[in-house]
Design a protein around this nucleic acid. Sequence first.
DNA 1: CGCGACCTTGACATCTGTCAACACGAGTGG
DNA 2: CCACTCGTGTTGACAGATGTCAAGGTCGCG
Lengths: 281, 281
Amino acid sequence: MFVPAQPESCPTGAHRAGSGASANPLPAAAPPSAIEAGTVTCSHAAALAFAEAGAASLHALHMLAGATLATIAAAAASARIEQLPRDARIFAQGSLARRACAVVTGSVRIVQTGCDGGQIICCFAARGESFGIAAMFNDARHSGDAIAVQPCTIASWSKAQLLDLIEASPRIAINLIGSVGHCLVESHNRVRELATQRCEQRIAHTLLRLAGQAGRDAAGHRAITIPLRRRDVAETAGTTLHTASRALAAWEKCGLLATCEQQLLIHDMPALVRIAHGDAA
Amino acid sequence: MFVPAQPESCPTGAHRAGSGASANPLPAAAPPSAIEAGTVTCSHAAALAFAEAGAASLHALHMLAGATLATIAAAAASARIEQLPRDARIFAQGSLARRACAVVTGSVRIVQTGCDGGQIICCFAARGESFGIAAMFNDARHSGDAIAVQPCTIASWSKAQLLDLIEASPRIAINLIGSVGHCLVESHNRVRELATQRCEQRIAHTLLRLAGQAGRDAAGHRAITIPLRRRDVAETAGTTLHTASRALAAWEKCGLLATCEQQLLIHDMPALVRIAHGDAA
DNA sequence: CGCGACCTTGACATCTGTCAACACGAGTGG
DNA sequence: CCACTCGTGTTGACAGATGTCAAGGTCGCG
């Protein structure tokens, strides 16, 4: 359409395979690209349950916000709905983007690996959010792996199906522009933070963003509902595991936050905001 | 639509005004938000010339790629087309996104300023590209200033007009998703580079990206048609003026590239690619 | 001539990535 | 049951890249 050529940087899977660095070879355990291969991993009973709940659960998808009931029904009819286990790979970096995906339940992380082995987490997709959209509409390849952080229910549509839905209800396209646009704005914020702020500040920003995206309020604290390893925090904040670990350990020590079963609980939001602003330097 | 709340980070104009850092107060010379205010700065003669050329020039816009002649005519009919001088501000960070813009001629840079005064260039928009889209479809505020790098011709539509166009031709929405999606992919690449690569590599990547986006081949070299100050390179690569200057000066010294009237000429692409890959460490 | 915008260069401090070692729990196989 | 491996997290020491501070140079312009 308007992408003149493959960009010069090389985050593609093909390159990655050729890299000698191999900081993170693909986990042999993960089934390759469940969605792409059409490998439905849900049990029969679960499938039935979700067929019933199907249209109902799609109501909550952001891409269908404001759509008519007829549109939602049409979307539900053409959607492929799958249940995937933790760590399943939904699509692979470098593969052609054939399907648009949305998270019905669970959460997904999009991981990009550079040809030098450097990894970052592009973003997390939480309940209701779409992912894998950007590449599809450019007829391009996915710029990262999509991995199920938790057991997930994922809805997906082929490009043709999605185009049909859009033709019938441009509202979906509007929503998708908003969705991708929101990611873009966040990404630009991350770029600025990476370019101009300290590690500590960036980690704080990362937590605040995640708390805003997938937070749940509880007794006196706010919990990030996406399970996070230290490594995830590091790769989202654009630093190393070591630095992230140090910062989080220090904050735990002074009671600012706590981790409980890979869930982060933020006890003192104002303090975190202050750190993010660089006030408490 | 689906943005729960304003993110915790604070790149908005309002914050910026309150910041004591003020590394870069707004240039007093620039007319405030020409497009927003409807301040048409083109001469009468120029206006006439462009009214004639109007529909013709819009053909080249990526957002109208593949659209029918009728659609393009409709777009041309509702578009506001303006000529802006160098350094004009097309919209301001923090202002409500009311109009979708596209570059007919010239080029635009989108600059984001953090509340701490930190600045980055989110992206450049070259001929044919759209900008200011992401924020508009989220009913949000612009995440950066849009500044004319050169004298520009800018087409713009109100949200209502654009929605009408999309209703009539969903293809436009598809193109816009692709456009925003392409920005997103590039932005993720930048995030990865910032998080994992050295300054030199990032500067090299920056130049390669710009050469791909707005390059012109000439006798034995490739020229970046967007005028670039050292500072622009630095803020695009996510480093300081000083470091960027050092790297570029060194590369000029060994004949890898040259600058001529703010135009960068790359003489040895393969070498630049090698540096970007980190081979020539 | 003075001033501002832009660029260059040098010296230095320090943040943070890298290397290394260790602890802990879960799973696995003997 | 034990030994072992693997993934994950923590901590310390250290070097080096790069931001910061400082000074000066060039060019265009009023």
